[in-house]
């Protein structure tokens, strides 16, 4: 983190951050493995892990249904489900697992890097606008999104879209990044002043980890909720 060097590599003329690649891949694999294991042996009468998975699906579906009206909600269920799980796992990953080597952290929460959260923000807004164009047609979409209530509202609307993009991505980044940074500071504190400091630091680290766990879950929920709100803004006409 602060003071850490960053490991990057170039591929096809693009710059990659090794930490992000490893962490993101790990998060994706965790999500996939969990979902895969939980979806074995599906039965009409659900038991154990199938209940958990169905509860999760219902949970994200309900988030989407909260803002997108019923007719369109099923189209975004899978997106919301995947987004929620991926962000949730990404948020929590750094709390339990941080692997460093030679002053470079290779595994941490991918969402503690703004480039990752902004990528998700961008994906969400692109999906929202794409759905808007698909549903309403380009003319009507443009009119609804940028020219309402007045034609000269256009600059403000464009600016609003930009703000949406930034806030959606940076909110989660801020929370996760600060959480990890504080955890790191507590960890440094534990090894700085002898055994007494360690004893003091352990419960603090515990409490902060618990709080970060809570914050990470809330942020994943907020991200998915805002995603569905943005989607509903684009695909629904204001009467």
């Amino acid at each position: 983190m602060s003071g850490d060097s960053v490991s990057t590599f170039q591929f096809l003329g693009l710059t990659f951050n090794t930490t992000n690649i490893i962490s993101g891949l790990l998060a994706a694999i965790i999500v996939l493995v969990v979902v895969f294991l939980f979806s074995r042996n599906l039965k009409l009468k659900p038991t154990g892990k199938q209940n958990v998975l169905e509860w999760l699906i219902d949970f994200t579906n309900n988030i989407v249904r909260g803002s997108v009206t019923n007719g369109d909600a099923p189209d975004f269920g899978l997106y919301a489900f995947t987004l929620f799980l991926f962000i949730f796992v990404s948020n929590q990953l750094g709390l339990f697992l941080q692997i460093g080597w030679n002053g470079v952290t290779y595994v941490r929460s991918p969402t503690s890097d703004p480039i990752v959260t902004l990528t998700f923000s961008l994906i969400t807004l692109m999906l929202a606008h794409f759905s808007g164009v698909k549903k309403l047609g380009f003319k009507k979409y443009f009119k609804e999104s940028y020219l309402t209530p007045f034609t000269f509202w256009l600059p403000i609307s464009v600016f609003t879209e930009l703000i949406d993009f930034l806030t959606l991505g940076l909110r989660i980044y801020g929370v996760i990044f600060s959480g990890e940074m504080l955890l790191k500071i507590i960890g440094e504190m534990a090894f700085s002043g002898g055994i007494g400091m360690t004893i003091v630091a352990i419960p603090i680290a515990f409490i902060w980890q618990g709080f970060s766990l809570f914050l990470g879950s809330i942020q994943a929920y907020v991200f998915v909720t805002l995603t569905s709100v943005y989607i509903s803004q684009q695909i629904q006409t204001e009467e």
Binding site: T82, F86, T119
Partner: peptide, 17 residues
């Protein structure tokens, strides 16, 4: 800019989905 990261995450996300 870490354009590669953005592309990577977009790709990973789509594949995961």
């Amino acid at each position: 800019l870490y354009l590669g990261d953005m592309l990577f995450f977009a790709l990973v996300f789509v594949l995961l989905m």
